[in-house]
Computed example of a mutant assay.
Amino acid sequence: MRGRPALPLRHPFPFWLYDADVLSHLKGLPRFDVVERLGERVAFLAGYGERARPDGYWDYAPEYLGMGYDGPDKVKDLSVPRPTMQADPTGRFPAAVLLREVLAGLPPDLVVVLISPPVFIAGLPAAGSEEAANEGRCMAAFAALAAGRPRTAWLDWRSDRPENRDPANFFDKTHYRASLAHEVERAVAQAVSKMTAAE
Rank of each mutant, 00 (worst) to 15 (best):
G3S: 14
A6K: 04
H11Y: 12
P12H: 09
P14E: 01
W16E: 14
W16A: 15
W16H: 15
Y18I: 07
Y18N: 02
D21C: 13
V22M: 08
L23E: 09
L23A: 14
L23P: 00
L23H: 08
K27E: 14
K27F: 01
L29Y: 11
P30H: 09
P30L: 01
P30I: 02
D33C: 02
D33S: 00
V35H: 00
E36L: 05
L38C: 03
G39F: 10
E40V: 04
E40C: 01
V42S: 07
F44L: 15
L45Q: 06
L45Y: 03
A46D: 09
A46Y: 07
Y48Q: 02
Y48L: 12
A52L: 15
D55K: 13
G56F: 12
G56Y: 15
Y57T: 13
W58Y: 15
Y60L: 00
A61Y: 06
P62Y: 00
P62R: 10
E63I: 03
Y64W: 14
L65S: 13
G66M: 00
G66T: 01
M67H: 09
Y69T: 04
Y69I: 10
Y69P: 08
D70C: 08
P72N: 14
P72R: 12
K74V: 13
K74I: 11
R82F: 05
R82N: 03
P83T: 06
M85C: 11
Q86R: 15
D88I: 11
G91C: 12
R92T: 02
R92E: 14
R92L: 05
F93G: 12
F93L: 09
A95Q: 11
A95P: 07
A96N: 10
L99F: 03
L99C: 07
R100V: 09
E101Y: 05
V102M: 10
V102I: 05
L103V: 00
A104C: 11
G105A: 03
P107A: 15
V111T: 14
V113K: 15
L114N: 09
P117M: 12
P117V: 02
I121S: 07
A122V: 09
A122D: 05
G123M: 06
L124A: 01
P125D: 08
A126S: 09
A126Q: 14
S129I: 08
S129E: 11
E131P: 08
A132C: 08
A132F: 02
G136D: 05
G136F: 09
R137H: 00
A140E: 14
A141P: 03
F142K: 13
A143H: 08
A144S: 12
A144P: 10
L145P: 01
L145H: 03
A147K: 10
A147Y: 08
G148F: 04
G148V: 12
P150W: 03
P150C: 01
T152G: 11
T152Y: 11
A153E: 09
D156S: 08
W157M: 11
S159R: 14
R161E: 04
E163Y: 00
E163I: 13
N164C: 10
N164E: 13
R165I: 07
R165Q: 00
D166H: 01
A168C: 12
F171Q: 07
D172I: 07
D172M: 03
K173N: 13
K173Y: 12
T174M: 06
H175C: 04
R177W: 06
S179T: 11
L180C: 06
A181Q: 13
E183G: 07
E183H: 02
E185V: 01
R186D: 08
V188D: 06
V192N: 05
K194A: 09
T196C: 06
A197Q: 04
A197R: 04
E199V: 08
E199T: 03
